[in-house]
């Protein structure tokens, strides 16, 4: 542990939907290079936190700081440009697009969208295109050689596990500083999940500063990949610490882990 300032800090973030307090005064921080597991029962506000941090919802109170700069309440576009990307709980991929197209949406901030550059200077565009193609290919290759090979085929042809990989690549290709993964293992077997996690860890070799917040229901996954955990219940943070610490916390056991995992810890 060092004393450097955290990469991301949530200071008392709050969000209400009508009578429902989805997030109540949530504070925690994420250090550079850290993987933070975000756990809690269904409806405890985890995805809402992601939606607030990525600018889909405006927070009702509190602050979200990236590198000390306030990003809470900014538009989603500005937050992406600041270096925060995410995946979605239910895959948000346009299945009629090719894998490459979908990745380029992720790389949007690096694309030259000028009218001249796209329409008239086709030679220069070709160079830019080829550079992006290689970038996409090498990123995909980390996850699956087949995806890299078939990157100009429509996503509709690929199974769920590949779609998860594509979503993660889309979030990674812009070299974000903070990556938010919303239940990447949903709908996958244990082996597939393990494989996916290994691949994500692999991409961090080239980008050691990348911090990841991961929402996950599979406790073994959290135990294996996370450096630290934050536990939510009813929109509040009820515990924080290493997996062992939170797993043995009686409050957490009561709220979430129940007897099944509580004994194991």
């Amino acid at each position: 542990m060092t004393n450097e300032a955290p990469l991301f800090e949530s200071r008392g973030l709050s969000k209400r939907f009508g009578g429902l307090q989805a997030l109540a005064d949530v504070s925690f921080s994420v250090r550079r290079g850290e993987i933070l597991g975000l756990i809690g029962p269904n409806g405890s506000g985890k995805t809402t936190l992601f939606n607030v941090v990525t600018g889909i919802y405006r927070p009702d109170g509190g602050a979200a700081l990236l590198d000390g700069r306030e990003i809470g309440g900014l538009r989603a576009q500005a937050i992406y440009r600041a270096g925060v990307t995410r995946t979605f709980q239910r895959c948000r991929l346009s299945t009629e697009l090719s894998i490459f197209d979908e990745l380029m949406i992720g790389a949007h901030k690096d694309l030259d969208l000028g009218f001249m550059a796209n329409i008239l200077h086709r030679k220069a565009f070709r160079a830019a295109f080829e550079e992006k193609r290689e970038q996409a290919r090498s990123l995909l290759a980390i996850f699956s050689a087949e995806l890299a090979q078939r990157m100009f085929e429509p996503i509709a042809r690929f199974p769920m596990i590949d779609r998860r990989r594509i979503e993660i690549c889309r979030a990674l290709i812009s070299r974000p500083r903070l990556l938010l993964l919303d239940e990447p293992s949903a709908g996958m077997t244990h082996d597939e999940t393990r494989q996916l996690m290994d691949d994500i860890l692999e991409t961090r070799r080239g980008n050691p500063e990348l911090a990841v917040v991961i929402i996950e229901h599979e406790m073994p996954v959290i135990e294996r990949v996370s450096d630290r955990c934050v536990v939510f219940n009813y929109g509040r943070k009820i515990a924080e610490g290493s997996y062992r610490e939170v797993a043995s916390d009686p409050q957490v056991q009561e709220a979430y882990l129940g007897t099944r995992h509580g004994a194991a810890a």
Binding site: Q77, Y80, R86, S94, L97, I105, D112
Partner: peptide, 21 residues
């Protein structure tokens, strides 16, 4: 071009598009 791709992205999923700038 990237413009065509961007227009497709806007049409197909606005929330996703906003999240990628």
């Amino acid at each position: 071009s990237w413009i065509g791709l961007t227009l497709d992205a806007v049409r197909l999923d606005e929330t996703r598009s906003a999240c990628f700038g």
